[in-house]
Write a protein that binds this DNA or RNA. Structure first.
Length: 384
DNA sequence: TCTGGGGTCCTTGGGCTG
DNA sequence: TCTGCAGCCCAAGGACCC
């Protein structure tokens, strides 16, 4: 459907053939010249997957959230969103806002299976696909003859095969495609040039752009920059009072929807970690040490299964005042076994000696080398 | 009021080295 | 031998994303 065209079944002759060949060649050159990127974003993915096996919940406010007292909402159905429930919101707050909501505990292995079904359909149709997390992918459609029709067909096929809907954004780069896919959810289909994106989102807050979060938006607001058009028009002098020259240029380019990042099939994993937030804070050093030992075992067995090793061993400690502290040590040679990682992690923890009760403890191995990892590649940040 | 887990990338500052 | 400097690596924290 979205494969590059290779030939034609009905032969043409003479002048008709020449005209046809020329027009096709020019069209192809135009297509090859203009990048065409699609961003496909599954609608309320975890909830939608749950509704496949629990159709009786359709139309109800369904919230997928962790079970613990300190958990957060992973996904909320559009019905639940009307009550103000959203992703990353504490579950306790979601319960207050939507007491009649149906709360489900996340089942990630089931979501991974559903994601694999969707991505398999995508890969069958498109050569260059960059999967981001379980529910998103960028598709490079440059040079394809009818990308819009092809994408519509692909979304229809996914709906037929999996029962799941997706929103699509298309544009000349990943940034335009990403913002466009979010513009008309659910089941949106938005195609924009870079210039059209600038116009359409001119009055939108800077936070709409991926890469500009709350903190950056706050710093921009101090400069009097609130909207995307204001950021696009901001001077170097103004931006450089709050950001480095490099960041200032980067932010303005984002606001102008300029982005030349390639759709990349390969995402290198550079670190892996295990961390846990406790239901109640832990102060006992021996208990912390035992928990850390368990995390080390879990992490190291995963690394060894993947044939990966890392040089930098780190711990992460979040105290009861929500301050987060990291400590790390880089070794001369990469390691992966618990016999090597464990003592270093324990040493870092004992040297830090948490001054207050601990809310979260984690261990991390970074600077990974070794076999590329396929399994478990779940939530990777958007590399824009 | 309450704020997960698992990631990436950037910035800043210090130490080392030629 | 001392000093200044550039470049690199490392550590820590922060911002951001799904």
């Amino acid at each position: 459907m979205l494969r590059k065209r290779t030939g034609r079944s009905r032969p043409l002759e003479g002048a008709t053939l020449r005209t046809y060949v020329l027009s096709e060649a020019f069209a192809l050159i135009r297509h090859m010249d203009e990048r065409c990127v699609a961003h496909m974003d599954m609608d309320a993915f975890y909830v939608s997957v749950e509704l496949r096996r629990r159709p009786e919940l359709r139309g109800k406010p369904v919230i997928v959230a962790g079970p613990g007292p300190r958990s957060v909402v992973t996904t909320a159905s559009y019905e639940a969103r009307r009550f103000g429930v959203g992703s990353a919101m504490p579950t306790s707050q979601a319960r207050r806002l939507c007491p009649q909501g149906v709360f489900l505990t996340p089942d990630f292995s089931y979501y991974r299976e559903a994601s694999a079904e969707v991505m398999e359909a995508v890969r069958r149709n498109v050569e260059i696909v960059e999967v981001v997390g379980l529910d998103e992918a960028y598709l490079d459609l440059t040079g394809l003859p009818a990308p819009k029709a092809g994408m519509r067909g692909l979304i229809k096929e996914i709906k037929q095969r999996t029962g799941l809907t997706a929103s699509v954004g298309m544009g000349p780069n990943k940034l335009v495609a990403k913002v466009a896919s979010d513009a008309e959810k659910p089941a949106g289909f938005v195609v924009l040039s870079r210039e059209q994106a600038c116009v359409r989102f001119a009055a939108a807050p800077c936070r709409l752009i991926p890469g500009i979060g709350g903190k950056t938006a706050e710093r921009l607001a101090v400069l009097g920059v609130h909207t995307i058009s204001e950021l696009a028009a901001a001077s170097d002098e103004a931006l450089q009072t709050a950001f480095t020259a490099r960041t200032a240029g980067h932010l303005r380019a984002l606001a102008r929807f300029e982005h030349d990042g390639a759709v990349s099939e390969e995402r290198k994993v550079v670190s892996e970690s295990r961390e846990r937030t406790f239901d109640t804070d832990v102060s006992d050093p021996d208990q912390l040490s035992r928990i850390l030992a368990g995390q080390v075992l879990e992490l190291c067995s995963a690394l060894e299964r993947q044939g990966r090793q890392g040089r930098t061993i780190g711990i992460k400690v979040r105290l009861d005042d929500f301050s987060t502290h990291t400590r790390a040590k880089t070794l001369a040679i990469p390691v992966s076994g618990a016999a090597h990682v464990g003592p270093v992690a324990q040493q870092l923890l004992s040297a830090f000696s948490p001054p207050r009760p601990v809310r979260l403890l984690g261990v991390r191995v970074a600077g990974l080398t070794g076999a590329d990892r396929e399994e478990g590649q779940q939530q990777l940040a958007l590399a824009i």
